[in-house]
């Protein structure tokens, strides 16, 4: 579905990604693991079109989408839930969800709001409340709900568990699993190694802008190299 081939990227003179090869197949959960500063968000934002790669290719269902602007990436159904949620704090929950379908899924906006509310009943209770007043966990739900409004085909989740209580993290990961069971391909970018590997099909481990380890999630869990390279043990 998504293919990254030799992707290089950075900011000005600073090189961050050094030739990343990565694939995501239809219906998979693929985890990208790595510590802070490994280049995970840079990778996401190059896929989403926020930044332009310096070399390499991004293919989506065989189509070259390298360098497409963000709105056209969203048009194709690649939607990112960014780190830090990035919800619209000055707008109501309803308006946040509505803007999720700014580019895609507009004709089915009302239906999709109902669907999101089914998944996150807590959002409905606060429909007209400003999003900025929500708790961290609720904001994360809203950010995912907002992305779901655009009927994504590939959902990129950047650190969805960041800043959540352990209980909420548990809830968040089981939700990701549920969304995946409905057929949605998910690219899960996380620092939370163990829980990510539990729900992922495959995983890549990133270090200093390169992939250092990859494989089936079930096998990676017991891989001594994972502990060595990622946890530094």
């Amino acid at each position: 579905m998504l293919d990254l081939k030799g992707l290089c990227a950075g900011y000005g003179q600073m090189k961050v990604l050094h030739g990343i090869d990565l694939t995501i197949e239809q219906g998979e959960i693929v985890a990208l693991l790595g510590s802070n500063g490994a280049g995970k968000s840079t990778l996401n934002n190059n896929v989403s079109g926020i930044f332009q790669p310096t070399a390499g290719q991004i293919l989506f269902e065989g189509q070259d989408i390298t360098g497409l602007p963000p709105e056209n990436v969203v048009d194709l159904g690649i939607v990112q839930v960014p780190e830090g949620r990035r919800i619209f704090p000055n707008m109501s929950i309803r308006e946040n969800l509505e803007l999720g379908s700014y580019r895609r899924g507009k004709p089915r906006r009302a239906e999709n709001i109902d669907k999101v509310v089914d998944v996150f009943p807590r959002l409905e209770e606060r429909f007209s409340q400003l999003a900025g007043t929500l708790s961290g966990g609720e904001q994360q739900m809203l950010a995912i709900g907002r992305a779901m409004m655009s009927e994504p085909r590939l959902l990129i989740l950047d650190e969805p568990s960041l800043g959540l209580s352990p209980l909420l993290v548990e809830e968040m990961f089981s939700l990701i699993q549920r969304l995946n069971k409905q057929g949605l391909a998910i690219f899960l970018v996380e620092q939370n190694v163990m829980q990510s590997l539990e729900i992922a099909d495959r995983a890549y481990v990133m270090e200093n802008g390169s992939i250092v380890l990859l494989g089936e999630a079930a096998e990676l869990i017991d891989d001594p190299d994972l502990k060595k390279s990622y946890l530094g043990l």
Partner: peptide
């Protein structure tokens, strides 16, 4: 209107707006 809402969204959260496909 969607455009009006997009204007308000961009006012506070440009990156979030970009990721929702708002130019």
């Amino acid at each position: 209107t969607d455009t009006g809402k997009a204007i308000r969204a961009v006012a506070k959260e440009r990156q979030g707006a970009r990721l929702m496909g708002i130019n």
